[in-house]
Design a binder for these strands. Sequence first.
RNA 1: UGGGGCGUCGCCAAGCGGUAAGGCAGCGGCCUUUGGAGCCGUUAUUCGAAGGUUCGAAUCCUUCCGCCCCAGCCA
Length: 565
Amino acid sequence: MTNLEPASGTDFIREAIRQDLASGRFHRVQTRFPPEPNGYLHIGHAKAIWINFGIAQEFGGFCSLRFDDTNPAAEDVEYVEAQKEDIRWLGYDWGEHLYFASDYYEQLYELAEKLIKKGKAYVCDLSPEEVRAYRGTLTEPGRNSPYRDRSVEENLDLFRRMRAGEFPEGSRTLRAKIDMASPNLNLRDPIMYRILYVTHHRTGNTWCIYPTYDWAHGQCDSLEGVTHSLCDLGYEGHRPLYDWFLDELGIYHPRQIEFGRLNLTYTVLSKRYLRRLVEEGYVSGWDDPRMPTLVGMRRRGYTPEAIRTFLELVGVSKANSIVDVSLLEYCLRQDLNKRALRRMAVLRPLKVILDNYPEGLVEEVEAVNNPEDPSAGTRKVPFSKILYIERDDFMENPPKQFYRLAPGREVRLRYAYFIRCERAVKDPSTGEVIELHCTYDPATRGGDAPDGRKVKATLHWVSAAHAIEAEVRLYDRLFAVEDPLDVPEGKDFTAHLNPNSLHILKGCKLEPSLAEAQISDRFQFERLGYFCLDPDSRDGRLVFNRTESLRDTWAKIQQKLGADS
RNA sequence: UGGGGCGUCGCCAAGCGGUAAGGCAGCGGCCUUUGGAGCCGUUAUUCGAAGGUUCGAAUCCUUCCGCCCCAGCCA
């Protein structure tokens, strides 16, 4: 028995739940994840999912998935299916506990009548503009609606006729009768129902009055028997309202606990902004691999494990925070390093001719599939006279910190031979190096010199005759600055879009075994990063996404060299 | 400005009156057939500030400062 307490077990929410269990306030744990089906889930939602599902699991309870579909104008079944898939992908299961706020419409209606009968709700004829004007401001109290004191009978009659469709859209609302002078604006007679002649994606046209989120949410939690309603800080100020409803109604009272939302550097995480990126064409869609949406991250090659580990490392608190994306990237690499098969791929090919290698000879060298996992085995990779190496791995006049290939220098080709660069052939018109003539040392087969000679660098390579071609999409952060929302007057976040967030490379050369890759398969291309096969791939036309690069110390050195000069 | 919330290392975050965990990032080194991975070391005499209580405070009290959220018939 270990006494190691999981890091995720010590946050204030879990602590509060333990206390509730110990004090007898609750005897079980039931949570819920309540998304609105009006868009795609992103990593911010993943935090709420991880908290609600994760905690229920830890405490031996369950977490339901309840779609908060109270606004038919914005919602669609397309989104409910997509969100379900995302949650499953993240690794969570709601079992038989799939609910919809719309399942409760009838019960909510009855509860509303109950409130009317108690004299705690009334039908108001104020227009939207008037409602706003009557609400007052942050510092001034609101004024009572002239309709506030209608009799219970009149309210009941009007409310029933609202439901029956006798009044035009927007003409009346049902409001809770609380306190127009409350310093908490949420308590200034909030609207419970509005008239909307809109077809609902589940209830069709059976309703023309729809409950607001504020009215529906707490009662749904109560009806379902939720013990702990875990939501973000935005709802903290609404809690007194939810308490008021529950108490006036005298029904079961769950406990709501709020936590701080997740924010990431170099990222924007609000539905509104993500939608703009899609609609204005800055990205190819919700599943663009640069998007922080779960569909986007999945396509990019993220693993659910990496995301969960990330969330666990970030932790839960009430402070508003902006987490450094490098933590996410770290978790991703950590996970991929352990599981991704290694392959060799040359992204920007430079031809190498081994002058002393026998014409027509093809050898097979044995390569390790994953040094982190011996059970992944080995594979054979063809080697021959003409090869491709990475352009970046050769420099004609290298600085002293560069220890890859250069004229007269010897390096190792991974799993193959030592080669020495004899000369570089240039395009006479551009001066660009177009191929390298090298010699190999037959005695170094496998990569070690019998005379104990060392080389500084090991390069990846692909045999030209055996290479398969592919398109590779290199992704970088979508935004160029840590906080894209921090913009000068007159600009918006799109001003900070990183113009280099996508590079498409064609004619990349891959080792032949990659021809068998299946969509979504993940690999580490040695010395480059992690890549996965994109669904855009067709027979004979492979497309790989770079999920994440490997940490690149040479790039750092180059940066410093650049900064110094 | 009324109400609510938050302020511990560059970024997260433990800490719950007994003398500042950990992770990421950074830096230095070791190791290495991935300049990857791994390993080691290193960074808060100080907890937004000032007072006070106490033998003793990041933890309790007071005041002040800063940041975030709330004025949708959105959720």
